[in-house]
């Protein structure tokens, strides 16, 4: 019996560790709406650059702001930006992918796929540069830039999976029953690509967090005073030699969140698709 339970835990190990990490940062973000140990806008020069101690659990920055509080509010920014960006990708990309697959080989399919290729030529940083140059910097830019980049990701993955399902005989059976391609797309295709979309969504979510951090770091994302992990790292850069915790703590927050989401995605894929489990460690 014991052997079985260990094997079961082993099977869900990725999912358990991943969800716990993700949940940790999600709850930090949610709690920050109600309460943070200190006010993140409160500047207290007398307590600047403190290393972690009993009052400031994760230390303070060069303005004497509490880093734990900033990490909590920063989680909010990162998660919100990444989540909305993934949402944009799914809401626009998935229907495009479904449409494209249902018109395989037709001009609509060709048009959508070529459009996808074109958007892939614009990395989200480049989109952010363009938007910022025109409209000025801000968190909304980051959302749009990462969101646009996510559209072809979801369109392509949906189309790929949908095409293989269109080949199945149960689709022919549905067509014999007189169902339209649109109806088949949402009744038969979508439920069968859902798992894949959830897994990909988790992975894109983690990539979104990395991208948001990068954009904020170069000043194309969230603007002060809105705390964000990328900005904290940008501020830390000049002080890294004498106050390394300023860089280490936000960096660790990013790594743990991204790691958690990736593990969660892998764990879900293992459960949804037992066939793939063997090809992964």
């Amino acid at each position: 019996m014991e052997k079985v339970s260990i094997a079961t835990i082993g099977k869900y190990r990725n999912l358990i560790i991943g969800s716990m990490l993700s949940l940790l940062f999600l709850s930090a973000a949610l709690i920050s709406f109600l309460w943070t140990p200190f006010d993140v806008t409160e500047i207290d020069i007398t307590n600047k650059l403190k290393t972690p101690d009993q009052i400031y659990w994760l230390g303070t920055d060069h303005f004497g702001r509490d880093i734990l509080s900033m990490i909590m509010v920063g989680a909010r920014t990162s998660i919100a930006v990444a989540l909305v960006a993934v949402g944009i990708g799914i809401v626009i990309g998935t229907p495009l992918g479904l449409l494209s697959a249902s018109r395989k080989g037709g001009w609509i399919d060709e048009f959508i796929m070529r459009g996808n290729d074109l958007v892939f030529a614009f990395p989200s940083l480049v989109i952010a540069i363009l938007i910022t140059a025109v409209f000025g910097a801000g968190a909304l830019n980051a959302i749009i830039a990462i969101g646009i980049f996510n559209i072809p990701v979801f369109a392509r993955i949906t189309r790929g999976a949908a095409l293989s399902i269109w080949e199945k005989e149960f689709i022919l059976a549905a067509r014999v029953a007189g169902k339209s391609t649109t109806r088949i797309s949402y009744e038969h295709i979508l439920p069968n690509v859902m798992n894949l979309l959830i897994v990909q969504g988790t992975i894109q979510f983690s990539l979104g967090i990395l991208a948001e951090a990068g954009l904020s770091y170069v000043g194309l994302g969230a603007q002060p005073p809105m705390p964000s992990w990328g900005r904290m790292l940008a501020d830390a850069q000049t002080m890294v030699s004498f106050a390394p915790h300023l860089a280490l703590i936000p960096g660790t927050a990013i790594i743990l969140t991204v790691l958690g989401l990736n593990l969660m995605g892998d764990g879900m894929r293992d459960i949804f698709d037992p066939k793939l489990r063997n090809t992964r460690a």
Binding site: E169, F170, L172, V176, A177, N192
Partner: peptide, 25 residues
């Protein structure tokens, strides 16, 4: 119509009741 492949002819996410009532659409 009845197809060849006993594995690919059915949507794995639907129950038998839904599968066989599809032609009633």
């Amino acid at each position: 119509v009845v197809f060849q492949d006993p594995f690919g002819s059915f949507n794995p996410r639907h129950k038998v009741s839904k599968l066989i009532s599809e032609p009633l659409f």
